[in-house]
């Protein structure tokens, strides 16, 4: 168990500043997720934690202990690879035992340790099967159990479920969350899928070009993004963004905005669509069952509105847009959030 802290860590490759003055602390036993587009520095941060890279400046601490001179194996951090890297010719049990057998630990200890881990992860019923006969989630379990028998201080997972079917991803992410709670260990996670990131993590760290943009609980980041960048990274459909003047032209009631507001952001679920003669025209309807996503063109902008249920709308019909009182996000010219009016 460990908390992991970065203090002013920077790392560059030639001219490319991959990680720029990064500060954060992963609390003990947290499910902590790094989120950002490609090139934003997620992989470099993982390598810095693992010890595969040394920071150019700054310091990394595990439980307050500086890691600068600690070699990767001595850091005792486990990595679960994207493809899981299970041995296909071994059963789940043999896979889990593998790291201990390799270290020539005595049989009784191995048995006890494996039993402890497999009980915790509720996988007794799959131990005799080879990976080929396991579901995606079960394979994940085996990979994690194999990492867990070594009793690492933390786990790193780099986009472990992106290769699965959409349906399987939904199930597996819940499994992952349960597993992390069962094993009570720090889990550091990287993904490209914002829904997955919000679903699993206790805390998220949002990166942009090697810099930390915001850290916090997923719903806090979603409800109160500190910048237009963070706002646009979370939520599907993404937040509507419009220049203040355009927004005023499109909305039926003038939004109550703070001083210095350049851009207004409205989440699709906070946009209300009324079937009456307004400045908007419905251009597309996506019925998803639980929600209906409307594309509405107003003031030269395509707005997305996520309506609950299956309301009746027609393509080409005029509509009026309005916004919930608390649904307005204001950003200044630099894209930083202003306290909402």
């Amino acid at each position: 168990m460990a908390s992991i802290r970065f203090e002013n860590v920077s790392k560059s490759y030639g001219d490319v500043l991959a990680v720029d003055q990064v500060n954060f602390e992963v609390p003990d036993n947290a499910f902590f997720c790094f989120f950002g587009p490609p090139l934003s520095g997620k992989s470099t941060i993982l390598k810095l934690i693992l010890g595969l890279e040394t920071p150019d400046s700054g310091e990394i601490f595990f439980d307050g202990r500086p890691m600068r001179d600690i070699s990767p194996p001595d850091r005792n951090v486990a990595m679960v690879f994207q493809n899981l890297a299970l041995f296909p010719h071994m059963t789940a049990l043999e896979n889990v035992r593998f790291p201990l057998v390799e270290r020539k630990i005595d049989g009784a200890t191995i048995k006890a340790r494996v039993a402890q881990v497999t009980d915790k992860l509720h996988m007794a019923h799959i131990l005799h099967k080879p990976p080929a006969q396991l579901s995606g989630g079960e394979r994940q379990r085996v990979a994690i159990a194999r990492a867990l028998v070594r009793d690492p201080v933390a786990y790193l997972m780099d986009d472990p479920i992106s290769a699965l079917d959409a349906r399987l991803r939904e199930e597996t992410r819940v499994e992952l969350r349960r597993m992390q709670q069962d094993m009570a260990k720090t889990l550091i996670y990287v993904t490209h899928d914002q829904e997955e990131a919000m679903s699993v993590s206790d805390q998220m760290l949002i990166l942009e070009a090697g810099r930390v943009r915001q850290i916090g609980a997923p719903h806090d980041l979603y409800d109160a993004p500190n910048s237009a960048y963070v706002a646009s990274m979370l939520g599907a459909p993404a937040m509507n963004m419009a220049d203040t003047s355009d927004a005023i032209g499109a909305l039926s009631t003038a939004p109550d905005i703070g001083r210095g507001t350049q851009t207004i952001g409205i989440r699709p679920e906070h946009l209300k669509v009324a079937r009456k003669n307004g400045p908007g025209r419905v251009t597309a309807i996506e019925p998803l069952g639980a929600t209906t996503v409307l594309s509405v063109e107003a003031a030269g902008i395509t707005w997305k509105a996520a309506l609950r249920g299956q309301p009746d709308h027609e393509i080409g019909a005029p509509v009026e847009l309005s916004v919930d009182a608390g649904g307005l996000h204001c950003f200044d010219a630099h894209g930083n959030a202003l306290s909402a009016a």
Binding site: G14, V16, P38, L39, G41, T44, E53, H192
Partner: peptide, 18 residues
């Protein structure tokens, strides 16, 4: 199966200690 748009840059993969 390659995920075209998720490839991290070569720069992140090169390794100074190496």
């Amino acid at each position: 199966m390659t995920k075209v748009s998720t490839i991290e840059p070569v720069a992140e993969l090169t390794d100074a200690p190496v």
